[in-house]
C-alpha cells in the first residue's frame, strides 16, 4: 500500500530500512562466496587445507555479520505476544 507510506523518512527509520536491506543482501553475498569453489578446477590446482580454511573463514564472517544485523534489527521484529491460552 504505497499511498499509505511516507516518501521520505527520518534519519533513524532510514537507517533501519537500510539495515533491512543489508539483512536481505547478506545471504546473496554468502551465496556468492560459497559458490566460488565451483570455479576451482581440477583437484591438482587446489588443496583441502586451503579450501577448508577459505570456506570456514567465510562461514565465520557471515555468522558475525548476521550477529551484528540481528542485534540491530531486533527492535524491528514483532513484539512477543501474550499467550492467549494461559
Amino acid at each position: 500500500m504505497p499511498q499509505g507510506r511516507p516518501l521520505f523518512l527520518a534519519r533513524q527509520s532510514y537507517r533501519l530500512r537500510r539495515l533491512m536491506d543489508a539483512a536481505r543482501l547478506l545471504p546473496v553475498l554468502g551465496l556468492f562466496l560459497f559458490l566460488v569453489p565451483v570455479l576451482w578446477g581440477p583437484p591438482s590446482s587446489h588443496s583441502t587445507v586451503t579450501d577448508g580454511i577459505y570456506l570456514f573463514f567465510v562461514w565465520l564472517v557471515l555468522i558475525v555479520c548476521a550477529f551484528l544485523l540481528s542485534r540491530a534489527l531486533g527492535p524491528a521484529t514483532e513484539t512477543p505476544e501474550e499467550d492467549e491460552e494461559k
Binding site: 545471504p27 554468502g30 555468522i63
Partner: peptide, 13 residues
C-alpha cells in the same frame, strides 16, 4: 550445512 546457513542468514526474506 552451508545451505541452512544461508537460509538462516537470510531469515529476513
Amino acid at each position: 550445512y552451508l545451505g541452512p546457513t544461508l537460509a538462516f542468514v537470510g531469515w529476513w526474506w
